[in-house]
Design a protein around this nucleic acid. Structure first.
Length: 465
RNA sequence: GGCGCCAUAGCCAAGUGGUAAGGCGAAGGUCUGCAAAAUCUUUAUCACCAGUUCGAAUCUGGUUGGCGCCUCCA
C-alpha cells in the first residue's frame, strides 16, 4: 500500500515497523462539545484506514485519545457551572454515540489525558534533564532554540520563517516566542495536578506524545489527524518525543483535508459548523459517512445539504442492488453455476481486486466507491433468474467485502413476520386471479405497515421502507 | 512576509503523458396489469495563455480565481 507521508510530501510504500502489525495513532476529540462534521472527517477516514489494514490481514492497534483537560474544557465547564470531569463524561458519551451512528468503530484504546498525567510529568522531566525544556514560574516550556536544527521538519517551516510571521504572543516567562508550554501552572479556579513544578496541568501537545508512547511505543507507524494539526501540534509532538527518546517518533504522517462549508473551513472558532449530533437528526447518518468517503481524504470537501441528499440517493442504489441479489439467491434453483455464470464470478473477483488497488493507492475511497458501483452495474446486467447460487453468492461476497471495509450498507433486515406472510399470500392469490384491485389494495396495506412490495418474475419481493 | 493546496459535465467526483471511472440529477426508449427495480441511449475535451512532446486534463512557465497553515481548531 502507498501512503502519502506529509513529512516527505510524497507517496511511500507502507511497511509497518513489525511485519503484520500496525501501530496507529489519531488525534481524537476535545470533549467540550458535540463534534462537528468537519471533526468527523478524520474519524471516518482513519476508521476506514483501520478497516482496510485489517482487511489486508494486518493486526492494527489503533489509539485515539480523548482530550479531557484544556482551556476550552475549563471555560465551558465554568460557563455551565459544572466540573471539567462532568463536562468530559457527558461529551465522551456523546462522542461514542454519534461516532457509532457514522459507523465508526471504537479504537483499540481511547486513552484520556487526565489518566496519563504521571506519564506526561515523566516525559517533561526527561526533556528538562536533556536541557530541552525549562521551568519558569511554575510553567514548563519546550526550548525550541535548543532544538532549532530539527524543529519544523514536518511543516516545512524553519524557525526563521516562523519568527518572521510574528503572530506569536510575546510572553515574558518564555525565553523565546516559539517555545511552547509543556506544563501550565494552575490559575485560580482551574483543576490542577501536583508536579515537581507546583500544581498545574499539562499542555496540549504533550498529551499525545505521552499517550502515544505509552500505548504504542516510542516509534509508531502511522499518526493521523487534520491538516490544521500539522503546525504546531504535530510539529511539537515530534520535538517532544524525538527530543526525549532520540528515536523516530512517527514513520508515516497522514493528514486529511478540510471539510468546508461555503468554501470556507468549518471550524468551531468560525462558528460555521454543524454538529453530527444535529445533522443525523435530519439526515441518514450513513449518508454522512458516504459523503465523507466520496472524495479523496486529502482533498478539501465542501459540505452542503444537497451533497448529503445525493449521498443518500446513491446509497439507496447499493441497498436495492444488495437486496435484489439476496432475493435472487433465495430464489435461485441451480446450485452450481454454468459457463455463463463464470463471467459473473470473474467480474466479482475483479471488483475485489480493483477495490484493493484503489485503496492501496493512498486510500482512494472515491475510486473504491466507483469500483463498488461498477460491480453493481455489471451484476445487474449479468444476474438473471437462471443464474446459479454460487455466482450470485460470489457477487454478494465481493459486495460485502467492499462495503464492509468502507463501513457502508448495513446487513439485511430480517423479514420474518407472520402478518406480512399472510398479506403476501393473499396478494399472490389475488394476482393469480388477476384481481388487480385487490392486489393494489393489499399493496397499500403493506405500505402502511412499512413494507414496499415489488413484483418480479420470481414472485413478490418485499423490502422495509 | 514564509510554507502549502485547489480549479474536470447542472451538482459531486476519480483519473498525473496515450486520447475523460463512478454517483446524483435531467431527457427519451425497453420491460411491467399498474407500480417499483433494472437496463439502453443522450448529457464534458478537463479555468485561461504560452511551452515541452509524435501525443497533455495529466509535465514546465505564466495569468486569473478560490482556499489553508504560520494563533485554540480535525
Amino acid at each position: 500500500m502507498k501512503i502519502f507521508n506529509t513529512e516527505t510530501r510524497r507517496k511511500e510504500t507502507f511497511e509497518p515497523l513489525e511485519p503484520g502489525k500496525v501501530r496507529l495513532y489519531v488525534c481524537g476529540p476535545t470533549v467540550y462539545n458535540y463534534f462537528h462534521i468537519g471533526n468527523a472527517r478524520p474519524f471516518v477516514i482513519f476508521d476506514t484506514l483501520r478497516r482496510y489494514l485489517e482487511h489486508r490481514g494486518m493486526q492494527v492497534t489503533f489509539v485515539q485519545n480523548l482530550t479531557d483537560i484544556d482551556d476550552k474544557m475549563i471555560r465551558r465547564a465554568n460557563e455551565e457551572g459544572i466540573t471539567v470531569k462532568g463536562l468530559a463524561d457527558r461529551f465522551i458519551a456523546a462522542y461514542f454515540e454519534d461516532a457509532a451512528a457514522l459507523g465508526i468503530r471504537p479504537a483499540t484504546i481511547h486513552p484520556k489525558a487526565t489518566d496519563h498525567i504521571g506519564e506526561m510529568i515523566t516525559l517533561i522531566e526527561t526533556l528538562i534533564s536533556k536541557d530541552l525544556a525549562y521551568a519558569s514560574n511554575g510553567d514548563v516550556y519546550f526550548d525550541t532554540q535548543r532544538y532549532r536544527a530539527h524543529y519544523g521538519k514536518l511543516s516545512g517551516q524553519n524557525l526563521d520563517d516562523l519568527e518572521s510571521g510574528a503572530r506569536v504572543d510575546v510572553d515574558e516567562t518564555k525565553k523565546h516566542p516559539m517555545d511552547f508550554a509543556l506544563w501550565k501552572a494552575q490559575k485560580p479556579g482551574e483543576p490542577a495536578w501536583e508536579s515537581p513544578w507546583g500544581p498545574g496541568r499539562p499542555g496540549w501537545h504533550i498529551e499525545c506524545s505521552a499517550m502515544s508512547m505509552k500505548h504504542l511505543g516510542e516509534t509508531i507507524d502511522i499518526h493521523g489527524g487534520g491538516q490544521d494539526l500539522v503546525f504546531p501540534h504535530h510539529e511539537n509532538e515530534i520535538a517532544q518525543s524525538e527530543g526525549a527518546t532520540g528515536k523516530p517518533y512517527v514513520r508515516y504522517w497522514m493528514h486529511n483535508g478540510f471539510l468546508n462549508i461555503d468554501n470556507e473551513k468549518m471550524s468551531k472558532s468560525l462558528g460555521n459548523f454543524m454538529t453530527v449530533h444535529d445533522i443525523i437528526k435530519e439526515y441518514d447518518p450513513e449518508a454522512v459517512r458516504f459523503f465523507l468517503l466520496s472524495a479523496h481524504y486529502r482533498s478539501p470537501l465542501n459540505f452542503s445539504r444537497e451533497q448529503i441528499e445525493q449521498a443518500h440517493a446513491a446509497l439507496q442504489r447499493l441497498y436495492t442492488a444488495r437486496d435484489n441479489y439476496l432475493f435472487l439467491l433465495e430464489k435461485a434453483e441451480a446450485q452450481d453455476s454454468n459457463a455463463e455464470d463464470e463471467a459473473i464470478i470473474t467480474a466479482a473477483k475483479d471488483a475485489a481486486a480493483q477495490f484493493d488497488a484503489a485503496m492501496d493507492d493512498d486510500l482512494n475511497t472515491a475510486d473504491a466507491i466507483g469500483v463498488l458501483f461498477e460491480l453493481v452495474r455489471t451484476a445487474n446486467i449479468l444476474l438473471k433468474p437462471g443464474t446459479g447460487k454460487s455466482a450470485v453468492q460470489a457477487v454478494l461476497d465481493a459486495f460485502a467485502e467492499i462495503s464492509g471495509v468502507l463501513g457502508l450498507v448495513k446487513p439485511a433486515e430480517n423479514k420474518e413476520d407472520a402478518a406480512l406472510e399472510a398479506l403476501l399470500d393473499a396478494r399472490a392469490a389475488a394476482r393469480k386471479a388477476r384481481n388487480w384491485g385487490e392486489s393494489d389494495r393489499i399493496r397499500d396495506e403493506l405500505a402502511a405497515l412499512g413494507w414496499a412490495v415489488e413484483d418480479t418474475p420470481q414472485g413478490q419481493k418485499v423490502r422495509k421502507v
